[in-house]
Simulated assay, not measured.
Amino acid sequence: MKKSRTIWIMVLVICLLAGGIAAGVLFFVNSSEKINPDIYGRIYIPDTEIDCPILQHPEDNGYYLTHDAEGEENLSGAIFSEDYNSKDFEDPITVLYGKNMENGSMFGSLQKYGDNLYMQEHPYIYIYAGDMEYKYRVFAAYLSDNRHLMERFCSGKSQGNREAYLKSIFDNRTMEAQIDNSVEVSTDSKILTLSTHDNRGEQYRYLVQACLTEKKEVSPVEAEK
């Protein structure tokens, strides 16, 4: 990890000296992908601790449970998707995983969405992938079991699968569940789910779900902000 950062700094200095500011900016834009080609996007939730690269390992869905974004062994892991999902965020159901870290890193702050006021104050999730920005509106946050969402609902491939998925969300009636019924969600919506472990036990997961409301093309510099 330290070695890769040292190389990263050295290359940046060379870029600045050899090609000026433009070369340095270009390096910054592509630096994450050069450090680890498994990085294919970034998740950002304004005014929260969540501002992290998104990864997907080509062979091992559990790899980034125990490795960081630079591919180094790290119990904090990284934010990642499994190979059930493509990397263009065009799937009906997309699930991103991250550990529930006590210091608030990774997805350690997700459970704050259990407070209605917090959900109102942090309604949007932004995903940057390639030259695209995806804007999602949070509409649900609740405690769930540990059943695999993509397998349970067949990745949302059919309308029936998607109907069952939405029903499972809106059927939550516990006091702790936060469901915003004012957000328009249908079987045609692209749903992003953020999933993390819950301290109450290995059989539980805490989920935050949002629907895609806007996507637009952005410059690489904007995507790095």
Rank of each mutant, 00 (worst) to 15 (best):
A129K: 11
K135F: 04
L17Y: 13
P58E: 15
S31M: 13
S155V: 03
G201T: 09
C52H: 09
E214G: 02
Y136G: 00
H67N: 12
S144F: 05
K99V: 10
S86M: 04
D68R: 09
A210G: 08
L65M: 13
Y126I: 02
S76L: 09
T48S: 06
L207Q: 10
A177P: 00
K215V: 09
Y134K: 04
D47F: 15
I9R: 13
T213A: 05
L166V: 06
L207Y: 00
I35M: 09
Y142E: 00
V95H: 01
Y206K: 00
N172L: 11
Y124F: 06
K167E: 08
V218F: 11
L65G: 07
Y63I: 04
N116G: 00
T193G: 06
Y44G: 08
V138T: 00
K112S: 03
I50N: 01
Y128H: 15
K2Q: 06
Q159F: 10
Y124P: 03
S32D: 13
D60R: 10
G77V: 02
T94H: 04
V95L: 12
F107D: 13
D83A: 10
E184F: 05
S186V: 14
R42Q: 05
R173M: 08
K3E: 14
Q159L: 13
M119P: 00
A18W: 08
A177W: 00
I9N: 12
D91A: 02
Y63E: 05
M10V: 15
G62D: 15
H148K: 13
C211F: 03
L166G: 01
N74H: 12
P37I: 09
S105H: 05
Y64A: 05
V25T: 10
V29H: 03
R147F: 03
E70Y: 11
K167A: 15
Y124C: 03
F28M: 09
Y165H: 08
D38K: 08
E72V: 14
K87T: 13
G108T: 05
T193Y: 05
Q178A: 07
N181W: 04
K99R: 11
G114H: 01
I9W: 10
E49Y: 14
E90V: 07
N181M: 09
K87I: 14
K225N: 02
H148G: 09
T196Q: 03
F139L: 01
L166F: 10
A69K: 03
E90A: 14
N74A: 07
